[in-house]
Amino acid sequence: MNVLRTIYLTSIFQSVHPNSKTFWRIARSRSTEDFESAPYVVTLLSSSLWVYYGITKPGGLLVATVNGVGVVMEAVYVTLFLLFATPQLRAKTAVLVAALDVGFLGAVVLVTSLAVHGSLRVMVIGTICACLNVFMYGSPLAAMKTVITTKSVEYMPFFLSFFLFLNGGIWTVYAILDKDIFLGTPNGIGFILGTVQLILYLIYVNAKASKQLGDSHEEEWQHQRLINSNSEHEADEEAHI
């Protein structure tokens, strides 16, 4: 029970914390700026499917509850895009919501409810959830590629990497205890990717600091060179006079 309580509370914290800064930034400025709505729309779909999986699977109340919080949070973010995004992005968001969060989700619920029964239904829903989660890990992979290419962690925030690691690790432990391959597979991948991101962060955060220090030294050197050049010029003028 203590293990389950720890998983529950930590997962709730994880679902709220990483995006809260973005939430307040959009709410205060009443603008979505350059943020894209697609990740939030897809995450809303993923959380909704996991809620359905948790409801369908015997003993899956924890999965349904935690992801239910995720559904509420992602619904708030998507609503912000529908309210404050530019007309073009607002239309794009509405289309994505209609296609994925309403159309695709509704189709999955309808088909699995009418055409699939018993343990096979749990297997089908779990497979869909796991595949979608694996697909969503394309974003961390892209972030890691950017870090390696630019040798900078500017576009890979520490807390997002940390919570990817934490969330993946916690749910992997839960999946092992519950013998749930559908939870274990995507979250195991998330745990590995989160670990790699943290390692990259440790490697390149100092490289970034060194680069900034080097740039600072170069600016100081150029400034000193300019001062010396001006001093020499003034000395030449005085000698000429």
Rank of each mutant, 00 (worst) to 15 (best):
D236N: 13
S20M: 11
T86G: 08
K92G: 11
P18I: 05
A115E: 09
T22G: 10
G70R: 07
W171E: 14
T149M: 12
N228V: 11
H233A: 15
G126E: 07
S48W: 01
G118P: 05
R5F: 04
I125M: 05
Y53W: 00
S47D: 05
V3T: 11
L202I: 05
V69M: 07
L200S: 02
V205Q: 03
P39F: 00
L83A: 14
V124H: 00
G138A: 14
S152M: 13
R225N: 14
R225S: 15
Y40W: 01
S210A: 13
S48H: 02
L82P: 14
I7F: 01
K21T: 10
L202Q: 05
T22E: 11
T150Q: 15
I189P: 01
T185P: 02
L61I: 08
I176Y: 02
S37Y: 00
Y8Q: 12
F23Q: 09
N167Q: 10
T172H: 08
Q88Y: 02
H223P: 07
I12R: 01
F158A: 08
V97P: 13
E238K: 10
I189D: 02
Q212G: 07
G70H: 03
L114Q: 13
F162M: 13
G168S: 09
G126M: 04
L202W: 02
S210L: 11
L9H: 03
K57N: 04
L177A: 12
V205F: 04
K145Q: 15
V196K: 00
K92E: 14
V72N: 03
L62A: 09
E220C: 13
L114S: 08
A98C: 07
L49V: 06
G60P: 06
F35H: 13
F104R: 00
S11Y: 00
S15A: 04
H233C: 12
V63I: 15
L120F: 06
R30M: 02
S229V: 06
L200E: 05
I7P: 08
T146L: 14
T56M: 01
W24Q: 10
A115R: 09
N230Q: 15
V72R: 02
E218Q: 13
